[in-house]
Computed example of a mutant assay.
Amino acid sequence: MRPFSIAIVLFLLSACTSVQVSQDYDPLTDLSHRGTWQWREAVQPPVGDLRIDNPLLDRRIRTAVANNLEGRGIVRAGDRPELSLSYHLVLERKIESDTTHTSMGFGRYYYPWYGGIGTETSIRQYDESRLTIDIHEVDTGQLLWRGVGTYRFRTYKTPQDAADAMQKIVDKILSQFPPVS
């Protein structure tokens, strides 16, 4: 395989594993001094998709969130937390296409007007995951911060690989919290 081809393959593979993140928050609320949190729900409400309604996945997401926050000194409180957290995971079917130019021809002899460019179009379906993490005010229930990570859904060979991947996704989403003014 030529070096250029290897670079293209590596770029495409890295694009498949990347997480696109965004955030929204109330700019009037200072979230930097909040130090305790608790989950709003014991488990994510079922959505009817076995890939999402999975207690093992729920535990991986919750563990990843707890690891991230507690690693930054935001501790889980049993009573009287300052923030309540929830998450929501959805999968959407997406379609992507690529067109490549495969050949170019020119006319000769008796058909000088004959020519053209050959193209091939590939169409693929994939599942896109969107993990939303919400942070609410405990007393009012008001949404203070929302982080969203969008990435391609995939399966993993081992439970540890799945847990490591979820930790990276959650870390990237929560890297935006607390927002910097």
Rank of each mutant, 00 (worst) to 15 (best):
L144M: 04
W113V: 02
G78F: 02
S129K: 10
P46M: 00
E92I: 06
H88R: 11
P27H: 00
V21C: 13
P159Q: 14
D98H: 10
T140L: 05
S181T: 08
N54K: 08
C16F: 12
S14T: 12
G107Y: 04
P112S: 01
P3R: 07
P178I: 02
G115P: 08
Y110P: 01
T63L: 09
M104N: 15
H101I: 11
S103M: 10
D58E: 06
K94M: 14
D58F: 02
P179R: 03
R80K: 07
V47N: 01
D139L: 07
D53F: 02
V180H: 12
G116R: 06
L28P: 01
K168S: 15
D161L: 15
L28E: 04
P3C: 03
R76F: 01
P178S: 05
A15G: 03
M1R: 03
G141C: 05
P3Q: 08
R2G: 14
T100C: 10
D58A: 07
D134C: 05
V90S: 13
T140Q: 06
D98E: 11
Q20K: 11
Q23N: 06
T100Q: 13
Q38E: 01
A77W: 06
S86I: 02
A7S: 09
P46V: 01
T63W: 06
L89S: 10
G35L: 15
T36W: 01
R93Q: 14
S22D: 07
T17P: 10
R2S: 13
S122H: 11
D164S: 15
G73L: 03
Y156L: 15
K94N: 13
N68K: 07
S129I: 09
P46E: 00
R51H: 04
